[in-house]
Design a protein around this nucleic acid. Structure first.
Lengths: 149, 149
DNA sequence: CAAAAATGAATTGCGCGCAATCTAATTGCT
DNA sequence: AGCAATTAGATTGCGCGCAATTCATTTTTG
């Protein structure tokens, strides 16, 4: 009897969370060759997408959008600034607030990024219905785990 | 016209991958208080689960199971060894191979972990059908992105 | 059988994620 | 006004992930 109890909760391939985790890692790896041309990491690309939608934003608002805090964002934003893609200004009204905005180079980069979602869609080899269903499940899980949307 | 083109591919909330990424991050955060009692990180818990199923395994085989390479696993296994949960031996037949096996403490820890999946299931507030469907989609995506299962 | 190729693991370096702590500025309270 | 509480962001420290490289040990091959 060297086999473990098959009815145990602790079976790796029964773990939804492990599938989620592995898929998320694989997704990040799949993005990398596409983003290499833009010299962006996946998270940097996410942040740039937020700014392409809304070109001026403080760190708090950005953090709410991407579900991350200043511990992650501050160094990342410094790197984006070092690349010349964004500007990190201070608010005049409230000196605590950092106002992040796109530089011209950051705005221009958007064009080069247009193809990335399409390429990733092809890589996934899944149809839109399945992907939308996956997205809805992830959004629900996120909401349930964090208590906010 | 300061609003960006609404039909653009580059809209954050349309990105399936971002939902996956955020859900995976949130999942890791949700595990943490449960795993703190066991003094394990999420990945350490995953590796221990693999070993609870199959108590002796080399690094390569372990890496295939968890979809990670030695760059991630070697330092992690050293930490598990430092905690006294595993033993990192060398194969006699092939001196290159590291044979990872559970220590008594590592084996014993399994009991304390039995409740973790149940607790996470409760935290997810989702029903089993939805979670199984999410898992199936993640497994398919992983397979399609990596070319192996 | 020696040189070359392949293999398993370790190492290096960088960028996250995230908890915890810190600093500085603003707001609330009396 | 003056002090406490709150808030925004920065900092610190640790553990991943992962590409790239290195090292040592087989295995293959000319």
């Amino acid at each position: 009897m060297s086999k473990p109890n098959p009815t145990s909760n602790l079976s790796l391939d029964k773990q939804i969370c492990f599938s989620l985790y592995s898929a998320s890692n694989a997704m990040g790896r799949a993005y990398q060759p596409l983003l290499k041309k833009l010299d962006l990491t996946y998270l940097q690309y996410i942040v740039m997408m937020v700014l392409w939608e809304d070109s001026t934003m403080n760190v708090k608002a950005l953090g709410n959008k991407v579900h991350l805090d200043s511990g992650t964002l501050t160094p990342l934003l410094k790197r984006l600034e070092a690349k010349g893609l964004i500007v990190r200004a201070r608010s005049k009204e409230d000196e605590r607030v950092r106002i992040i905005s796109l530089s011209d180079a950051g705005t221009a980069l958007r064009q080069q990024a247009e193809q990335v979602p399409t390429d990733m869609f092809c890589k996934s080899k899944m149809d839109i219905e399945a992907l939308n269903s996956l997205k809805a499940s992830c959004d629900l899980l996120l909401k349930n785990l964090t208590g906010k949307d």
